[in-house]
Every structure is written in structure tokens, then in C-alpha cells.
Computed example of a mutant assay.
Amino acid sequence: MDEDIEPYVRRKKGEGTNRRKMETLNEDEQNVLRNAINSRERKRMHELNDEFDALRNCLPYSNDTSVRRMSKANTLLLATNWILNLKNTNANLLTENTMLKAQINFLMSQSAAGTNSSTVPQPSFPPSHRPCYCVNCIIKEQQQKSGEGEESGNDQ
């Protein structure tokens, strides 16, 4: 019954067998083995830290020497958030690209049919957060600006 209440304690793998192996070795062999184990662990940690540094360099974070280096946990959190942000931006761009392709196809079908696009209602798309630099939009924008300038000149 007490075993059910006891909190979980993580046990080391093969704890007894490694100690028995160490006891069979003399002191010099134990030191050599311990140094080899420590060296492998040190090498592993250096490689891990190098990879974290490489990840920090990829993230939108100041690499200035006056700014304190991010911890490993903060690096992973920022990397996760940055990847999610890029994923959302990519999804938005794909949606916008699909809408623009649909608009191009619509305009191409209208011009192929020979109809005047000014009499045919244009498809309505949500406004893009980026300005459009196609020829039609530039001409339309210039016409709107010149129309506004003429109207304000007539008022005087």
C-alpha cells in the first residue's frame, strides 16, 4: 500500500553493475576509465553548446556583446515561437498567393471573353497589407490622385 503513495524516483540504469566493474579494476585503471568517461561527457556538452550557439545566431535576437547571452531554455522558447511565427506567415502568404492567382485567372478569362472589365463586377478580395505594384493598380492609383487634386482645385 505504501508503494502506491510513494512519489516516483528516477533510478539510474545499471547502477550496481557499473560499480561492480569499477571495483574489479585497480586504482590506475579506475582513473583512466573515469577520465575517459569525463572526456566523452565534456565533448558531448561542448558539441551541444556549439549547436545552441548556432541556433542563437539563426534567431532574431541581438548578438551584440553588451547583450547577455540567452539561456538554453530561452533559446528553445524563442526558436519555437519564431518557427510558429514563420509558419503562420507562410500560411498567410500562401492564402494571399491563391487569391491573387484567382484574381489573375478571373481577369484573364474576362479579357479572353472580350468583355469590358469596367462593366463586369470585379471579385472582391480582402485588402492586402502590402501595396500592389502591377501596372493596372499603379495607373488606377495615379488616376485617383489626379482626380482628388482636380476636385480640391475646383473648390477654391
Rank of each mutant, 00 (worst) to 15 (best):
N26K: 10
Q144A: 15
A113T: 08
L48P: 00
T98I: 02
V32E: 09
T119R: 10
N49H: 07
R69S: 06
P60G: 04
T75Y: 01
E150Y: 10
L86I: 11
K12H: 05
N26C: 14
N57R: 15
R40V: 09
P7V: 05
M1S: 15
E27F: 02
S146R: 13
C137H: 14
I83V: 11
K21S: 09
I139V: 15
S109Q: 06
E3I: 13
M108L: 10
M1V: 14
Y61I: 11
V135C: 04
P131E: 03
K43G: 06
R19Q: 15
K101E: 13
I37D: 05
I37C: 06
D64S: 12
N74Q: 12
E96F: 01
K72V: 01
R11Q: 10
N154T: 07
L84M: 10
D2S: 15
E151A: 15
L86E: 12
N35I: 06
S128D: 00
Q122H: 09
S109F: 05
R44L: 07
G153F: 12
A91Q: 14
Q30T: 02
K87D: 13
S111T: 02
G149S: 04
Q103V: 00
K13D: 06
D28G: 10
M99H: 13
D50V: 04
I138M: 09
S124D: 05
C58H: 07
E47N: 07
K12I: 02
R130A: 03
R11W: 00
S128F: 01
S118K: 07
E141R: 12
N57K: 14
H129P: 12
K101G: 04
E141C: 09
E51S: 12
N35M: 09
E6M: 08
M22S: 14
E6I: 14
C58T: 14
N31A: 11
P131Q: 07
N92L: 07
D2T: 15
T75E: 00
L59I: 08
Q110C: 05
N35E: 10
G16V: 00
D28M: 05
K43S: 08
L86K: 11
V67A: 04
L55Q: 01
E29R: 15
S152C: 07
R20K: 13
L93C: 04
L59D: 01
E96Y: 02
I139L: 12
L25E: 09
Y8G: 00
W82D: 05
M99T: 02
S128A: 03
Q30E: 09
L55D: 02
R68Q: 08
R34N: 10
A73Y: 04
N97S: 13
S146W: 05
G149V: 00
L33P: 02
L59W: 00
E27P: 04
N38G: 12
L107P: 00
N154L: 13
D155S: 04
